[in-house]
Amino acid sequence: MRHGKADDETECLFKVGTLPVPFKSPSKMASAEEQQAQKLMAEADKKSASATKTTGFISGVFGGSSSGKIDDAIELYCKAANIFKMAKNWSDSGTCSLKAAHLYQRINNKLEAFSKFTDASNAFKKNDPQKAIECLKQAVAIQTEMGRFSMAAKTLVSMAEICEAEPLRDIPQAVGYYEKATDYYQGEESKSQAQPCMLKVAQYAAEREEYGKAIEIFEQVAERCAANPMLKSGAKEYFFKASLCQLSVDPLNAGQALARYIGTCPAFQDTREYKLMKALLGALDGDPDGDAFDAALKAYDEVGRMDGWAAGMLQRVKRRMGGDSDLT
């Protein structure tokens, strides 16, 4: 079969080896990128060190030569960070962004410093979550100093999420960040943003059997929802979670709490969750073998399964009855 002219020329180029750009494997390209970034970072380090030496009386009297060097160093660090990022070298990318952040602090550019601390955290999060949190701590310090507490709260939530995830899985630390974020949001009257943070604190409190704390938060959120026509439908979920915590403490308290909840939100009485709680209370009162307890749960799950957190709470109640059936 006869090829076209263009095909013949291309074939000839391959034969004589005259292609203008030789092919490089992806691994070699990545290595070349990292070498380029390393050179940029080394050059930035020199400019940063030189600026430090010239800072002081002479710089203040005769001009901002050190400021120009700092600007140049920042630009080089940012370029290097992006190249390392493309090469998926997260550690060096984070280090370059972190160095740029510290230089921005030296020239009192707080917004850019915050941005670079955030970039550094995003890079470190891939393989060094603790260092990522340390970067975000510095970002929060800048935000609070500037009076931007809603932004600081959002950053605290990011810190909490890093703590929740593997490999850290540091729940007490995560709860502390969620609580601080709640304080900041509430101080700014951002109640809708504070609510998810509060609910995280309540759920973890219940898992640690701090039922009083969990009940207080769930009831507070439920009452807020019940008082707002736009949020009213959500009240049943939080009254149900408060009821589960009450049940974990004492069935008598749970029964009294249910009566209060329908007084605050009469629509709760018509929900599947309320009916389940009444059935469970009846089972606990007159069914030492737990058969009625299991039957109530089965009837509920036939319509729609409860979430894992609620199932875990009821598993604890079941164990106290002397049973060990899997409710999840």
Results as ranks from 00 to 15, higher is better:
residue 84 F to G: 11
residue 61 V to K: 10
residue 287 D to Y: 03
residue 210 E to F: 05
residue 128 D to I: 07
residue 19 L to T: 14
residue 163 C to Q: 09
residue 156 L to I: 11
residue 299 A to M: 05
residue 94 G to I: 01
residue 46 K to P: 04
residue 160 A to N: 03
residue 243 S to K: 08
residue 108 N to E: 15
residue 256 Q to G: 14
residue 152 A to V: 05
residue 268 F to C: 06
residue 194 A to T: 04
residue 202 A to E: 02
residue 16 V to K: 09
residue 87 A to G: 05
residue 83 I to E: 01
residue 113 A to R: 00
residue 221 V to R: 03
residue 194 A to V: 03
residue 193 Q to H: 13
residue 133 I to Q: 01
residue 32 A to V: 12
residue 94 G to L: 04
residue 85 K to T: 03
residue 166 E to W: 02
residue 55 T to H: 13
residue 290 G to P: 03
residue 171 I to H: 01
residue 261 Y to T: 07
residue 133 I to K: 01
residue 93 S to P: 10
residue 296 A to I: 01
residue 207 E to N: 10
residue 306 M to H: 09
residue 26 P to F: 07
residue 204 Y to M: 10
residue 224 R to D: 15
residue 223 E to I: 11
residue 314 L to G: 00
residue 57 F to M: 05
residue 223 E to N: 15
residue 121 S to A: 10
residue 312 G to Y: 00
residue 264 T to N: 08
residue 257 A to G: 09
residue 251 P to G: 12
residue 4 G to Y: 06
residue 39 K to Y: 01
residue 16 V to L: 14
residue 281 L to V: 09
residue 253 N to S: 14
residue 258 L to M: 05
residue 68 G to D: 10
residue 169 R to A: 11
residue 240 F to V: 02
residue 161 E to N: 13
residue 11 E to V: 13
residue 49 A to K: 12
residue 187 G to D: 08
residue 271 T to M: 07
residue 304 G to S: 15
residue 215 I to M: 11
residue 157 V to D: 06
residue 225 C to Q: 12
residue 163 C to A: 05
residue 53 K to C: 01
residue 5 K to H: 15
residue 187 G to K: 08
residue 92 D to Q: 10
residue 258 L to G: 01
residue 20 P to L: 14
residue 137 K to H: 15
residue 131 K to V: 07
residue 267 A to W: 04
residue 295 A to P: 02
residue 265 C to A: 11
residue 30 A to H: 02
residue 110 K to D: 08
residue 215 I to F: 05
residue 297 L to V: 00
residue 90 W to E: 06
residue 196 P to Y: 07
residue 194 A to D: 07
residue 214 A to Q: 11
residue 191 K to Y: 15
residue 282 G to D: 02
residue 59 S to L: 05
residue 42 A to F: 04
residue 205 A to Q: 11
residue 161 E to Y: 04
residue 188 E to W: 00
residue 320 R to N: 09
residue 13 L to K: 12
residue 76 L to K: 13
residue 228 N to G: 02
residue 248 S to F: 04
residue 266 P to I: 07
residue 18 T to V: 15
residue 27 S to T: 11
residue 59 S to C: 04
residue 9 E to C: 06
residue 181 A to H: 01
residue 159 M to F: 06
residue 327 L to V: 15
residue 311 A to N: 10
residue 30 A to E: 12
residue 278 K to T: 01
residue 123 A to R: 00
residue 177 Y to P: 05
residue 298 K to S: 10
residue 61 V to T: 07
residue 316 R to G: 13
residue 226 A to V: 06
residue 291 D to C: 06
residue 326 D to L: 13
residue 241 K to T: 11
residue 52 T to K: 10
residue 114 F to K: 05
residue 50 S to R: 13
residue 255 G to T: 09
residue 68 G to R: 08
residue 62 F to L: 13
residue 11 E to T: 14
residue 84 F to Y: 15
residue 230 M to A: 08
residue 265 C to I: 02
residue 86 M to G: 13
